[in-house]
Design a protein around this nucleic acid. Sequence first.
RNA 1: CUGACCGUAGCUCAGUUGGUUAGAGCGCCAGAUUGUGGCUCUGGAGGUCGCCGGUUCGACUCCGGUCGGUCAGCCCA
Length: 432
Amino acid sequence: MSIQAPRGFNDILPGEQYGWRDSYRWQRLEEIFREVARLYGYQELRPPMVEYVDLFVHGVGATTDIVTKEMFNITPRGDDPDARRMAMRPEFTAGLVRAYLENGMPNNPQPTKIFAYGPAFRYENVQKGRFRGFHQLDVEVFGAQDPAVDAEVIKLGLDVVARLGLTGLVVSVNSIGCPNCRPRYREALQNHFRPHLGELCEDCNTRFERNPLRLIDCKRDAGHPAQQSAPVTLDYLCDDCRTHWEGLLSHLEAMGIPYQIDTRIVRGLDYYTKTVFEVLHPKLGAQSALWGGGRYDGLIEVVGGKPTPGVGFGMGMERVLMVLEEEGLTAPFADRPRLDVFVVTLGEAARPVGLKLLYELRDAGISADIDYLGRSLKAQMKYAGKQNSRYVVILGEDEVQRGEASVKNMDEGTQESVPLDQIISHVRRAEV
RNA sequence: CUGACCGUAGCUCAGUUGGUUAGAGCGCCAGAUUGUGGCUCUGGAGGUCGCCGGUUCGACUCCGGUCGGUCAGCCCA
């Protein structure tokens, strides 16, 4: 085999042996997410996987790593004069905001509480927990500035992983202020770092002018005394942001959510205001963030709407599933769906009878399968066992002549003769 | 892009100081049991030892290059 999946992309496969790539685990995680989202009053919106690049430039931020070096660009037909640059989505928020505005959703009763999930793409270097094609569970609330919503969103994510049995999570929160208080903080940061520019990395020298907030979360300069002693956003919050911040903390406490304040969280996206948070798990190596998010009160206006507050998060499905695997938490995935009936036929005469029964079983909503390889009885039984079938219905010459079938309960090892027209009810009855 | 480690069967891996027919376990197929799965036993299929070149009488093994993978840095889901 010379052709492989593209670097940084994974196959999600049927079978427990594939660990976090087991497609059944993905189904369960998605089910749990939908269920929790429904519980909180969120509704699903499915945006396209591709958007015009401009949306991400404005909606994610022109200075962000995502836009400057990680965009997964699509090349449209070169002969189309109207072809605009497009890109695979690197995250969900921008596309959801676009869809919210484009479809007139601001005219609906507010707030608008949305969930979405699916693949996202970032063209970057691959390592543990970081891929070029990955999947997120995402929620967004548009049109509410109450810090109780920030807290709700954090709680929602925790509920999802709680249902998976995951513990040992660390919720880190911070506030990075708003356009009112940011300039003062920005200036303080620049004054603080200016004397040390020569000692900092080149990226930080670029950030100094374009995005000084990023100076404090640069890991290359981590440990540098200037970074350690850098001014903290929380000391520069305006009254509005301070009230919001204190409100968030009191809501978290009221909900009994343990948290830690991490003043180095600034988030890589330009649009965040006030609340930012990350939820970490130590078992993931260098990529310890299972999910992260925050408030973005300026974003919707930037994308073209009226000033509207927003808050949300994106959770990494791969990361969640990898942590579950490392923790040995397989219980949420224990009850795998199984085949109800495997139909075994012996000889030419039984074949059409078996096929007819197969179709009737499926029509009745009973999962059923049959051998298509002309295998021996023994091999068919073996195969039925491998498929983890509850029952095997055996149709041989004798049974067909009597209008009956031998029905074997594969778990009990018991077997009895059942008239053909009673097989469905027999299997159903036993199911209860 | 930089660095470290790693490429032998579908999977997980052995393979001695270089020595001729490259092995095991699991999985797959079949038989033992011409009408009965799981357990056991027996047999079978399946490999250009990532690729190219070099050293050598001889390379899975040593050297160089290359491709691929993993982890790490920047960043984050």
